[in-house]
C-alpha cells in the first residue's frame, strides 16, 4: 500500500472495508424486476433512505432470486446487496433465523457470537463494527425489514 492509500484507509476505518464500499458502489443484485412473487419496502424516517426488495420463490418456498432497489447510504446499500447473497436459497423462516444472528452481530459485535453463528453470517460479518455505532444500525437493518415484508407479500399472492 502506498502512503496515500494507507492514509485513506485510516480515514475509512474498518467499518467501511472494501467489500462494503464496493457493494455500495456496484451492487450485484440491484434493480427489482416485474416478475417477482413478493415485494417489500422499507423507509428510514430519520434520513429518508428507502429500500425495495423483490423475491422470487422456488416450489419449496426458498428464495430463488432476491433483488433490491436502494436509495441510501453506503451501509444500507451494501447491507441490501450482501443480504441478497446471504438469503439466496433460504425460506422465509430461514432468513428470519439468519436475521437473529445478524441483529446479534450489530448489537453485540462479532466476539460474542458462536463459531457456528459466525460461519452462518459469512460476509455479513463486514458489519460487525456497527455495534459501536448505535445510530447506524438501522441503516444495515432497513433492507432486512423490506426483505421480510417481501416474503410476507409473496405468501399473500
Amino acid at each position: 500500500m502506498s502512503e496515500q492509500q494507507t492514509a485513506t484507509r485510516d480515514a475509512a476505518g474498518s467499518l467501511y472495508r472494501d467489500l462494503v464500499v464496493e457493494r455500495a458502489r456496484r451492487p450485484l443484485h440491484g434493480g427489482v424486476p416485474d416478475d417477482v412473487d413478493g415485494i417489500g419496502d422499507g423507509t428510514n424516517p430519520l434520513c429518508g433512505d428507502t429500500v425495495q426488495v423483490g423475491v422470487r420463490l422456488g416450489p419449496d418456498g426458498a428464495a430463488a432470486l432476491v433483488r433490491h432497489r436502494t436509495r441510501g447510504c453506503a451501509i444500507c446499500a451494501a447491507s441490501a446487496d450482501l443480504m441478497a447473497d446471504a438469503v439466496q436459497g433460504r425460506t422465509s423462516d430461514e432468513a428470519a433465523a439468519l436475521l437473529v444472528w445478524f441483529e446479534a452481530l450489530l448489537t453485540q459485535g462479532e466476539r460474542e457470537l458462536t463459531p457456528a453463528a459466525r460461519a452462518e453470517l459469512g460476509p455479513l460479518l463486514a458489519f460487525a463494527e456497527l455495534h459501536e455505532y448505535r445510530s447506524r444500525r438501522k441503516c444495515a437493518m432497513l433492507p432486512w425489514s423490506a426483505l421480510l415484508a417481501a416474503y410476507r407479500s409473496s405468501e399473500k399472492a
Binding site: 447510504c73 453506503a74 455505532y133
Partner: peptide, 21 residues
C-alpha cells in the same frame, strides 16, 4: 456520498458533526 456515511467516517476520526435533516 451520503451525509450519514460522511458523518460516520468523520466520527471514526474523532470529528463530531451532525448529519440528517
Amino acid at each position: 456520498a451520503h451525509a450519514h456515511d460522511v458523518a460516520t467516517l468523520l466520527d471514526q476520526n474523532g470529528i463530531a458533526v451532525r448529519a440528517g435533516t
